[in-house]
Design a protein around this nucleic acid. Structure first.
Lengths: 191, 191
DNA sequence: AGGCAACTGGACACGATGTCCACTTATTCG
DNA sequence: CGAATAAGTGGACATCGTGTCCAGTTGCCT
């Protein structure tokens, strides 16, 4: 007997699993092609499934984007937890923060449409990923000898996808310029 | 003969001016009561005018919020340009930046629903006000001896209304905690 | 093989948007 | 003062996206 452990797929039927793949594949392409302004109807049509089928799994476009981003974010999270310095443990808090900024910029640069799509409707802070980033920064703040629970959110704010998009494509800044500006922030952590 | 100088009101008719006031008054109240999620229909109904009348002046809710915010923002802008230190000229860049953060937090605290309403649809960066804030910070960055055109946008990011709302009402931080965290950022400017 | 439950797709009702235009009103000018 | 005219008004309309719902289908297990 199949036990129900996850609400998403305790024992997902074969056709259902196939449809999930088609949805995710279509979403990846749609996001890349036309940016974050895609609708559930678009997505259903592109995936070749009915709207009801799509809604069965994902309540809105943001959820789909989050699911796609998740894969890429987990790689970075692993690096932070157990990778080599300066991302992983071993470097000073300031160095780790700077390395984190650089890695996040790389991630944003590669997946900007997804990142933008993931926060349609102020989902930004409720994402599991956001909590992870904050926990990481909070840990660096503490290791640096500071006692400030609010600072992590402040230090994360410049990584908002909209800010990054604005800097890159509205203001025309280069990737390394953005990185340089962000890494300046790392000096708020005493050495 | 009346010359057409402004697209909004070269020679605004008396009844039109009255309606504009009713719209702005109704908007101020609606934003305060039910947050930023008000619709053009709501607003028209609350102001006691038809939808067509409302659309004649404001293309969307964000525009109305921006118009309302503008009044309050101009006061701060005046202080930055010609007020007494530490906001106005005379203090060190670092001090002025810190004072700016504090003043902006006060403004956000007082008008958060408006600030949230003003950026429905990523209008954030295209506002005239945003340009002013950036120019101010850019000037402080320069006066501190740095040459970094990207830093101002980074330093402004934590002032995004959504970030402030999250810190205050989701995370339960106090006004002074937020101020303290922000003022820590000022150390990126050398003294 | 057969029955059940998961799954599917599209129709539906709803709410918001932005436009359009016939009508009304303020203002100007003879 | 009383047309004439342009500015202003309000609500109907068409459109679009959303989210729900359910009758019919299909995979899977025994």
């Amino acid at each position: 007997m199949g036990k129900k452990l996850l609400d998403t797929s305790p024992t997902e039927r074969a056709d259902a699993a196939a449809n999930r793949q088609r949805i995710l594949a279509a979403a990846e392409q749609l996001f890349a092609e036309q940016g974050p302004q895609i609708t559930m109807s678009d997505l259903a049509a592109a995936a070749g499934v009915g709207r009801g089928t799509l809604y069965r799994r994902y309540p809105d476009v943001a959820s789909v984007a989050i699911a796609l981003l998740d894969v890429h974010e987990q790689a970075l999270q692993q690096q932070l937890l157990a990778g080599p310095p300066p991302l992983g443990p071993g470097a000073t808090p300031r160095e780790r923060l700077a390395a984190f900024y650089e890695a996040m910029v790389d991630l944003l640069e590669r997946h900007l449409p997804l990142a933008l799509g993931a926060e349609l409707g102020s989902t930004r802070f409720t994402t599991g990923a956001y909590g992870f980033w904050r926990a990481f920064i909070a840990s660096q703040v503490r290791d640096a000898g500071l006692r400030d629970d609010t600072l992590p959110d402040v230090l994360l704010a410049p990584l908002a996808p909209e800010v990054y998009q604005y800097q890159r494509h509205e203001r025309g800044r280069s990737v390394s310029e953005v990185k340089a500006a962000l890494e300046r922030l790392a000096v708020v952590l005493p050495n």
